[in-house]
């Protein structure tokens, strides 16, 4: 027990990211409503962001903004150990903004579907399209 708890604490971010990812995939698979599917997609995407930020974290390190050096200690070299890894932050920062743009496109599609079918439930739309093909035959 004394070994299990520190182990879980040191890996808790990764476990939560897996739980969030499964939650998002559950939303995409199981929910019939398109709005819920989009929320599931967003949760899946934020879980990936959580994973990326977690692998960049460092103990005993500060934010990735360098301290401006004065003249008297200009020869002190910048140690990479003292700063959090900035590379995952850059990748995820752009990913979030792209996510909201694609969210807009997804919601536009949902509004368009609602205009045509008067519902956003997937099973009802499938039923309506099946009826249309029967009538055409």
């Amino acid at each position: 027990m004394h070994e299990v708890l520190p182990f879980i604490i040191s890996k808790i971010n990764y476990f939560i990211y897996i739980i969030l990812m499964m939650l998002g995939m559950y939303g995409i698979f199981m929910k019939k409503n398109y709005m819920k599917k989009i929320i599931g997609l967003n949760i899946l995407q934020t879980s990936i962001i959580l994973f990326f930020i977690s692998i960049g974290a460092k103990n005993n390190a500060t934010l990735p903004i360098l301290e401006l050096q004065n003249d008297h200690d200009a020869n002190v070299a910048i140690q990479a150990v003292n700063y959090i890894n900035p590379l995952p932050h850059v990748l995820m920062l752009t990913a979030i903004v792209v996510a909201v743009a694609t969210l807009g496109v997804a919601l536009a599609m949902v509004i368009k579907i609602y205009k045509d079918y008067k519902t956003i439930e997937e099973d009802k739309i499938l039923f309506q399209t099946a009826e249309d093909t029967i009538e055409n035959e």
Binding site: I53, S54, H89, L93, V97, A99, L103
Partner: peptide, 18 residues
């Protein structure tokens, strides 16, 4: 977790616009 830029983006994008 120290990712201030990402937190700023998420606060304006995720909690605001979306």
């Amino acid at each position: 977790m120290g990712a201030v830029d990402v937190a700023f983006t998420e606060a304006s994008v995720g909690a605001g616009i979306s």
